[in-house]
Design a protein around this nucleic acid. Structure first.
Lengths: 191, 191
DNA sequence: GCAATTATTTAACATTTGTTAAAGGATGCC
DNA sequence: GGCATCCTTTAACAAATGTTAAATAATTGC
């Protein structure tokens, strides 16, 4: 279904423009899969060996603590789902990634992806560029935790990703912002 | 001075093993530079166009807020100094990186590095792998801020990088851990 | 070696955030 | 449509951390 893939290929090219041939290699390796809401895409108990593009749906990554879950990532349409820890170390990771809505995903196996990286320099550089962008985003969030109050972080998220607030339960948003749900409720009650 | 470079080449290979020829290309591109303590290696006002390996010394990356500095990274021997934001976006970044001791660095210009990435697939994959590892470390720190108390984070840092505590003023450590210096003093006074 | 600066600790108090519990809303399932 | 479940808010109190300021300790520059 080409229409579904168009936003994803556009996203791929926006990360790092690929020659048509190499873009095609990547796209041809994609397999369409659908999962219901609440499906665990990646879990801590096994090595995950796919990278997923989200064509439709919303996902969250979280860790399990003693008596809490920490949500540290959200992905929406055209975002990439990847358990870095599991994928990079080839060991079961610390994170779970679940769908919060019924989803349509396109995936490529780690084996196929690695083969592309090993044999096509533009794809290798695409992979590098993708991770670089993820790193910047993560670093900015880490820094923001220190610079900005929980209230400011909420207002920013609201401004940057209003759709997220509409699609995701507030308890996950609270965790993502690094506060408890009670604190988030207080923030939302301000003014 | 080959002895100085040995730990750095070992580190390079530990990130992603490189064929001798490509390792040599990278090493041959390195230029030895020395800077005194307190030298700003990377600053927010200009685009930085080098990647540095630390042969000797210790560095910290920080951002400027209204009335505070936030330290978010430390690098020691064999670590790589890179302003992701500046380097990736080719715009002045948000971070300053300074030496906390007199330092010996080996650097490669961004131009040369990009040329290596464009022409040598193993170097492109090396660059990808390096960023992946940085991403995992950053992600873990973000998650730990939520899972663990300031005291636990301090104890962990003490266990993982005892040398850091000896070489770096506590005010920077406090900032790195995400607390004020007063709080860190309290933590250290426990027991 | 001394003065000046910088780093660290301590104290008192203010503020923020967490914890627990309960109540009210919303949603989904049959 | 109604029951059960989950989500969200609110309240009261506890704990952690921030703020300000002062005292001490360590370091640096001359």
């Amino acid at each position: 279904m080409q229409a579904e893939l168009a936003p994803i290929t556009a996203k791929i090219n926006s990360i790092y423009p690929l020659p048509q041939a190499e873009l095609q290699l990547l796209v041809d390796s994609l397999e369409r899969v659908t999962y219901p809401k609440n499906q665990l895409i990646i879990c801590t108990t096994k090595v995950e060996n796919h990278l997923y593009f989200i064509a439709k749906g919303i996902a969250r990554a979280y860790c399990h603590g003693e008596n809490q879950q920490v949500t540290f990532w959200f992905g929406q349409e055209t975002d990439i789902i990847l358990s870095y820890h599991s994928y990079i170390n080839q060991q079961p990771g610390y994170e779970n990634i679940e769908l919060l809505e019924n989803g349509i995903l396109y995936r490529i196996s780690d084996q196929a992806l690695q083969a592309l990286y090993q044999n096509h320099i533009n794809l290798a550089n695409w992979g590098r560029k993708f991770v670089e962008q993820e790193l910047i985003k993560t670093e900015e969030r880490l820094i923001n935790r220190q610079f900005k109050s929980a209230s400011e972080r909420y207002q920013e998220l609201l401004a940057q990703s209003p759709s997220l607030l509409k699609r995701v339960p507030l308890k996950h948003i609270a965790s993502y912002l690094g506060v408890t749900q009670v604190t988030l409720s207080r923030i939302r009650a301000e003014r």
